Each structure stands twice: as structure tokens, then as C-alpha cells.
Amino acid sequence: MTSTLPALQDRLLQDGFAFVPADAMREQLDAASLPDWPAFTASWNELAPDTYLASVGRHRRRRHAVFSADARGVHREPHQPHYQSKTYNPLQGDIERWFEPVTADGASLRRILDFCHRCFGGLAPQVAHWQVEVHQFRIEARANEAGEPTPEGVHRDGVDYVLVLLVDRSNIESGTTTIHAADGRLLGSFTLTHPFDAALVDDARVFHGVTAVTPVDPSQPAHRDVLVVTFRDALRARGGA
């Protein structure tokens, strides 16, 4: 299950990001033994509208949860708001945003969080305590309106490391992830197209964005479902950086 983890860590150290194809990610997660994966993916059908984004004329659905990670493992924390400064999110920064809590907290989510803890914790062994945030996103595309996976544009999240895991995409095209240097240079691009395709990002080193998604068949529903997990040094988080 962990045989290729050092190679992924080396790519993150070298490039600041890594695309992980579905087969490799399934190996990392031992996905064949996840009994609740169908229920986990179905939980995206229960996401609530992001009312904060709707107030500025954009649309998506989401749920959110906060965890902590340390030498004892990963632990869920009481429900709390998601906060980013305008430095990282000029569209919706400097406000506490409360979202409906993640309910699909079973074997699949815990396996993903454990993988992140091994991967990111191994890259920063000096960090004893991590603040972990989990975001379920559904981006919907309509005939007259493209869906925006990253409405804030090319950005950093203000954390240490990020996992973006594709859960499902239906009747959409595009949605290309782009990775950029601080000066805007394009460092790489790839499209998450299959369930379990993933991106790992060193948020302190590179910026990332995703192009808009449009329906293949405008007469049918179209969506892109992803799980985003962020890891941040808890000491830095408490300091407000």
C-alpha cells in the first residue's frame, strides 16, 4: 500500500506538486478494501449550496469538517467555520464561513486522511500537530453557465499541503488543473478525469487553479465532485498566519 509513497514525496520535494493517476492512488488507499466507497461518493448528492459564493453570483455545493493530526493519529474536531484571509482568497477572505458539516466520516474518508498524514507528515517531521480541513465540493455546469472549480482564480490556500481527489465527474469537459510559480509561470497542467485521480500540492511553494467546466450535453445535468484536504502546521494556524 505504501510502496510508491517515497516516490510521491520525492516529486513533491522536487517540483512542489504531483499528479497521481487513479491506479496509483487506489494502491495508496488500498481502495479495493473500502466497504463504504459507494456511500461515500453518494454523499456528494447531499451537499448544501454555498450561500457565500452565491452572494457574488457564483454557484457550488459543499460540506466542511475540521480534524487534527498528531502522533496518535487523526481526530475529528468540533464543527467550526472555515477562514481564509484576503491575502489568499480576495473573493471571500477575512470572513468566517460556516458550512454544513461533513457526514460521510467513515472508512473511506479516514483512509484518505491517514494517507495524507503519512505523506505530508513525512515531508515535515518537525511538525507535531496538524490542523486538517476537509472540503466536499460539487461544481455544477449549466447550458448557459460554466462551473468554476476555483472562482478565486489561480491561488494558494494559505496552508502547507493540499490533496485534491476526484470523486466523480459527469457530463463535463475541461476542468484542467494548472500549477504556477509565484511569478505566474506555468509549471504543469493535468486534468483529473477518473475517480481517484489526485493532485498533491506544496501550497507554500506553488499556486494552483482549475479551468471552468462546461456540459458535454447541455440538456443534461453536469457536475464535478472533488474532495479537498488541507494540512497546516497547527502552531502557525493558531498564530493567524
Rank of each mutant, 00 (worst) to 15 (best):
T214R: 15
D30T: 12
P78I: 05
H79W: 11
V229D: 10
L5P: 00
G121N: 06
V74G: 12
D157P: 01
P101S: 06
D36H: 08
G57L: 09
L123G: 01
G240N: 07
R118Y: 03
A146C: 13
V66N: 14
A146Y: 11
S219E: 15
F231N: 09
P35D: 12
F190H: 09
A107R: 08
V206W: 01
V229S: 10
D70A: 09
R110Q: 14
S85H: 10
L227F: 08
A71W: 01
S219K: 15
A222R: 12
E133A: 13
S174A: 14
I112N: 05
Q84P: 12
Q28K: 01
G106R: 07
L12W: 01
F120I: 05
A124N: 07
R118M: 04
A42D: 14
P125L: 01
A141C: 14
D203K: 04
F40A: 08
D70N: 15
G184F: 07
R156E: 05
P6Y: 12
L200K: 02
R11F: 01
D217H: 15
R60T: 09
P149M: 03
F137S: 13
T230Q: 08
D114G: 06
W37A: 05
W44R: 10
R72K: 13
V102G: 07
F115I: 00
I179T: 05
